[in-house]
């Protein structure tokens, strides 16, 4: 008898393989023997500065998932106001207090990809990139 968490993750994996979101190149457990650590590869959205780039994410899944959000970090360096340049930590409400168990690993990755093209200057983790964004916005 597999536990609820494992069953849900297996279904998420099947769901991704059956119907993968565009720009989400990969979403799979990193190692065969540990279903709680996944990796994902994001492709930059077209017509944005991120087009053509690929970013690797590491997803750590807590034991009480989906009652708690997954912990997702950028493994590839990225310059973005809501992403910590060194640690890869992401500031995104749905990964924090706005999480809902109806979200999936796939939908969380899609939210991150959308964050790339729609930065949230009000909750910066990368102050320099944030200052640049604000400055650029002011110029416009």
């Amino acid at each position: 008898m597999t536990d609820t968490l494992t069953r849900r993750l297996i279904k998420e994996l099947m769901e991704f393989r059956k119907d993968p979101a565009p720009d989400l190149k990969d979403l799979t457990p990193e190692k065969e023997d540990d279903i709680l650590v996944w990796k994902a590869i994001l492709e930059g959205e077209r017509d944005t500065p991120y087009e053509g780039g690929q970013w690797k994410l590491r997803i750590n899944i807590p034991r009480n998932y989906p009652m708690a959000p997954p912990n997702i970090k950028f493994m590839t360096k990225i310059c973005h106001p809501n992403i910590h340049f060194k640690s890869g930590e992401i500031c995104l409400d749905v990964l924090k207090n706005a999480w809902s168990p109806a979200w999936t690993l796939q939908s969380a990755c899609i939210a991150i990809r959308l964050l790339l093209s729609n930065p949230e200057p009000s909750s910066p983790l990368n102050c320099d990139a944030d200052a640049e964004t604000r400055w650029a916005t002011n110029l416009l």
Binding site: N64, M67, S100
Partner: peptide, 17 residues
């Protein structure tokens, strides 16, 4: 599972919020 969500996360519908 919905009651667990109410207890651990909050009193909202997980999909419609």
């Amino acid at each position: 599972h919905l009651n667990e969500h109410f207890r651990k996360i909050g009193h909202f519908d997980p999909l419609s919020r």
